[in-house]
Amino acid sequence: MSSHPYSVLTPERILDAVEAQGYRCDGRITVLNSFENRVFQLGIEDELPLIAKFYRPARWSYEQILEEHAFCAELTAAEWPVLAPLIDPEGQSAHRDGEFVFALFTRFGGHAPEPDNLNTIEVLGRSLGRLHAIGALSAFQHRPAINIEDYGVASREFLLSNDCLPQSLREAYDTLTRDILTIIDARFRDCKYTAIRIHADCHIGNILWRDDRAVVVDFDDCRMGPAVQDLWMLLSGDRQEQTEQLDALLEGYEMFHAFDDRELSLCESLRTLRMMHYAAWIARRWSDPAFPSAFSWFNTERYWAEHILALREQFAMLHEEPLSRPRGNF
């Protein structure tokens, strides 16, 4: 039997945990796409289905989970479109079941926004401007910040100490990532940005488009960080296309919150840190049976050769002029 924590999260246990909150489940369980946590759609008798999210044990503390929920509740109170966890009659949004903490959500439908539509990009900018205006009002007390140590240094050290990185490529990875982190450290020091509460994982897959508005979901990774972290992942294409998208994004964004253009110098640094963090995340989760089946290519020399090649391309990008607004837009 697997010793992984999720091995004891049986259908019976899931149903019992939800029914302990006063719901009557009809036995239908659909596993939804999630690797870090376990997320299920549950049928409820005479009511609409619910979404149950069971947090990965030992990843976040109970206080950190509550802080995520409090941020969502603050956004909801400000009528910002977010899928927030349900609150029970006792005022609780996070529930304990043994080693697990779980939250319940209403089911919400929608589709991914069109990332190449400038009108859509402007709407996304307005939504993120409102988010950051609220996020800047106070700081997280328990949740960490996006930083080079966690995303870069710790990821690098873990991979260099792990067997997943082929011996033939260790030296190349070692020297390249050391040089990359030196540059990124200088970029962060020069920028001197103000950290605010952000979503921190604001890619298209975490945005639902419905009724001509964007609803952001999954605040599981919310942290303190630079505002640009929630913007750069919405830009795609060549430099000209990204510049046009950035212009539309900030046109909407600055209707609600000022943006410091100096943060644009961090875009490629943040992209590189995300790439390093992602590789280390898979390696750290390899004992979870869901990961080897979903990422079967991870333990191959080809993957690591391509990963190092991608990091080399990022190394070159870090030496180029950062993205900027079109001239005249200040």
Rank of each mutant, 00 (worst) to 15 (best):
P226A: 05
A227F: 11
A227M: 13
A227Y: 11
A227I: 12
A227N: 07
A227Q: 15
V228D: 00
V228H: 06
V228G: 01
V228Y: 02
Q229W: 09
Q229A: 07
Q229G: 04
Q229R: 11
D230H: 08
D230G: 09
L231K: 02
L231R: 00
L231Q: 08
W232N: 06
W232C: 08
W232M: 11
W232E: 12
W232P: 03
M233N: 10
L234G: 12
L234M: 15
L234F: 12
L234K: 08
L235V: 08
S236N: 15
G237I: 00
G237A: 04
G237Y: 06
D238W: 01
D238R: 01
D238I: 04
D238G: 13
D238T: 03
D238Y: 02
R239E: 15
Q240I: 05
Q240L: 06
E241C: 13
E241L: 14
E241T: 10
E241P: 01
E241M: 14
E241K: 13
E241R: 14
Q242F: 00
T243W: 06
T243Q: 15
E244H: 13
E244T: 13
E244S: 09
E244F: 09
Q245V: 03
L246N: 12
L246G: 06
L246P: 10
D247W: 07
D247K: 08
A248F: 07
A248W: 09
A248N: 12
L249F: 07
L249K: 10
L249H: 04
L250C: 07
L250R: 03
L250W: 00
E251G: 01
E251F: 05
E251C: 10
G252T: 10
G252D: 09
G252F: 06
G252Q: 08
Y253K: 11
Y253H: 13
Y253V: 04
Y253M: 11
E254K: 13
E254T: 14
E254I: 08
E254Y: 09
M255R: 14
M255S: 11
M255T: 14
F256Q: 14
H257F: 14
H257A: 02
A258N: 12
A258S: 13
A258E: 12
F259A: 05
F259N: 02
F259V: 02
F259S: 03
D260C: 02
D260E: 14
D261C: 06
D261Y: 12
D261A: 08
E263H: 14
E263G: 00
E263N: 04
E263K: 05
E263W: 09
